[in-house]
Design a protein around this nucleic acid. Sequence first.
DNA 1: GCGCTGACGCGAT
DNA 2: CATCGCGCCAGCG
Length: 116
Amino acid sequence: MPYPNAVDAPEAAQCILATVRAIAPGQVAGYGQVARRAGLPGRARLVARVLASADDPGLPWHRVLRSDGRIALPRGSPAWHEQVRRLRAEGVQVDDGRVRMPRGQGTLDAALWGPD
DNA sequence: GCGCTGACGCGAT
DNA sequence: CATCGCGCCAGCG
């Protein structure tokens, strides 16, 4: 747990960004997962807000999905298409706005970073 | 200060 | 599976 439990500090955003950048290409993670890993359990919504306001062009925001593997953005929106495009470009199999889980691994949680 | 809204999550139906 | 409802947090009018 490299990060402190800062909730009301701009540092929280940094922890989140760092965590998102830590996601390897071709891999994906859930908002809640990112939040937990960033030391901010239960702050999935905060993660979403940080990504939405982040201006870093190199940020792999497209690798962050809902816990059920679905893209969080409004279906069909420009950003939605963009996310699908980027994911596919990394070899991630996306089917109708939802990421194909590798072999019935219930949700992202268990499939990728698993139970920390 | 108040209520609405949303790149969320989870259990119940 | 697809939906619904409710809890949760932060920004905005």
